[in-house]
Computed example of a mutant assay.
Amino acid sequence: MKKSKSLYHGHRFPPAVISCAVRWYFRFQLRLRDIEELLFEREVVVTYETIRCWCDKFGKGFAQRVKATRCKPGSIGHLDEMFVSLRGEPYLLWRAVDEHGVELDILVQKRRDKAAAKRFFKRVLRSNPVPRKIVTDQLRSYPAAKAEIPELAKVKHVFVKAAARSNNRAGDSRQPTRERERRMRGFRSPKRTQKGLSCFGPIRQHFALKRHLLPAALYRKQLAARFVAWCEFAELTQNPSTVF
């Protein structure tokens, strides 16, 4: 029987080091140079450009494995759009979360019209079940796009006023993205922003448990289980803490 190649085939650094660097980047509000310094403290000499390559190569795969194993999303979808500046040009980051705040999908687009809303609806439906209800602001692009998608024909559509802060589930969930934007001193290209934030959401939420709702012992137990799952996602055969 032919043995399959390792996920890290061709890399001279141990898998634990690579997976740890990728996890730090997408889990915490760290820059590439911050991770370079953290690894150097642990006697691992690697440049920030190498870490960038690791994140580009492994981030998407890790995020997909996280999404594939997480619980089924809730039946209510909260959709909204937020403005981001890419090299001084305004873009819209379309976002969808369920009633628990779990990010379903994102899409960076230039426009805010019916075609953009329809494109986003289809993207969300490709990787998530049809919701029972969707909650949006009063942007007219949403109902116009929804009317042309057969899967959403019988889905209840609830409108809220943005000024009333009724759609807090979607509004609150964008805070980590804003923090990420400030830490990186703004995003650059639409392609890199889409790729980076698509990995950032699932990986961050995999470890970001609702600590304020859990007793300390239960929180540590669940967090330990998340680390065990991460070792499976990253195909690690040893605990990363034993490498450093």
Rank of each mutant, 00 (worst) to 15 (best):
F40Q: 09
K146F: 01
I203Q: 02
E41Q: 13
V22E: 08
R180E: 12
A16I: 00
L139F: 05
Q175W: 12
R70I: 05
H157D: 05
C20W: 15
K146Y: 00
S166I: 00
N239H: 14
F233Y: 15
V155W: 03
K72V: 09
W230S: 09
H11R: 02
S241P: 01
F233I: 15
S4H: 08
E43T: 09
A208T: 15
G10W: 01
H100N: 10
R192N: 13
P190E: 14
I76N: 02
S241M: 12
R42H: 14
D137T: 04
G74A: 07
L209C: 14
L197N: 08
L104T: 05
A208L: 15
D105I: 06
P240A: 08
M1T: 03
C20H: 15
V108F: 12
T193P: 09
H157E: 05
R185G: 06
R27Y: 08
I35Y: 02
T193I: 07
T177V: 14
L93E: 11
Y25T: 05
L107R: 06
K118W: 01
V97N: 07
K3F: 02
Q205S: 05
L197V: 13
P15Y: 02
S4Y: 09
S6T: 10
K5I: 01
V158Y: 02
S85I: 11
W24A: 00
S141D: 04
F58C: 01
R140M: 07
E36F: 01
Y219M: 10
A96Y: 10
C53I: 09
R174G: 04
I18R: 02
F83K: 12
R42A: 13
R31E: 10
L79P: 03
R70L: 07
S141G: 15
F120K: 00
L223M: 15
W54K: 01
T136H: 03
P143E: 02
G61R: 14
W230T: 09
V66Y: 06
S198C: 10
K110C: 03
E89Q: 14
P90A: 06
I149K: 00
F40N: 07
F62T: 05
G101R: 03
R123M: 02
V102F: 06
L152E: 05
P73D: 02
L86C: 14
E232R: 13
L223V: 12
R33Q: 04
V17T: 13
V108A: 13
V97G: 07
K3N: 02
V84C: 10
H11W: 01
K191T: 11
P14K: 12
F26P: 03
L30A: 06
L218F: 04
E148W: 07
K60M: 12
N168W: 08
Y48T: 01
